[in-house]
Nucleic acid binder design. Structure first.
Lengths: 129, 129
DNA sequence: ATACTTGTTATATTCTTAGTATAACAGCAA
DNA sequence: TTGCTGTTATACTAAGAATATAACAAGTAT
């Protein structure tokens, strides 16, 4: 799985790493049971520090996306806590949709956006390869 | 319009201010043409520094939610840049929905979440008063 | 047993951001 | 003039992000 990073972004590197890996899982780019590169290897590939990668992996572990094994490394392992996941989704949506409403984006457009983003993640319509 | 702040949150104070005001606009709690408290007044009310409020107002101005007038203060004034607003919405959704997909949240549940959040903003179902 | 790799922990340093604290300025209203 | 707006400037503290070394424990491979 290819992982890139934008050094000019105002988003923290470890957050970018988390997001990319989550997108990779959602798009089946990497699947349950498969392993990510080791912290040192990924850090070297991207050109960042080991601890930055380790921080991302630790967060993903705590959020139930993978498990860390000292022998195998970082193994994708999904813990399906839907209750908590829904609460987080509602939190994110409340600010995102409030913004959208202020900009006169209709509810139909929001629903279309959900479908398009899902399709994009699953089948890769627009940009991402 | 009532504005509160959570000092224990890991979210920056000025971000919380921005989000609250945007939610206030979306929920018609405050409307186009109406004015927000002055930077000094709001800062005193909440118990934070003037510059933190000023930072929030400046961002909201730059994002097209209000205009700053030296005589009237901060006046709600919506600049409807739908193109940009949609791009931002897609950005936020892509990471939020990828997370949701990993947690086996169905597309139907996502659509229901959109409707519930919108209704909650507009009519105040659950918690917010 | 040795060498190597894994995640993990610890410490220290640099840089950026967030937030505060004063202070002053320009424009406008009572 | 007095008092209120937003605006700008400067300086400081605190916290987080990222890096740099270093070492440790546990497993694998030779």
């Amino acid at each position: 799985m290819v992982i890139r990073v934008d050094f000019n972004s105002d988003e923290a590197l470890y957050i970018q790493l988390c997001n990319q890996i989550i997108l990779g899982i959602a798009s089946s780019n990497i699947q349950e049971g498969e392993t990510l590169p080791s912290v040192r290897e990924l850090a070297d590939n991207i050109g960042i520090n080991m601890h930055t990668v380790n921080k991302a992996y630790s967060i993903l572990k705590q959020e139930g996306f993978l498990k860390l094994d000292r022998r195998k490394g970082a193994v994708i392992s999904l813990d399906l806590d839907k209750v908590n996941a829904k609460l987080e989704l509602y939190d994110v949506l409340s600010v995102a949709l409030a913004r959208a409403m202020c900009k006169n984006i209709t509810r139909e457009e929001m629903h279309r956006a959900v479908d398009e983003v899902c399709d994009d993640i699953l089948y890769g319509n627009t940009l991402q390869e």
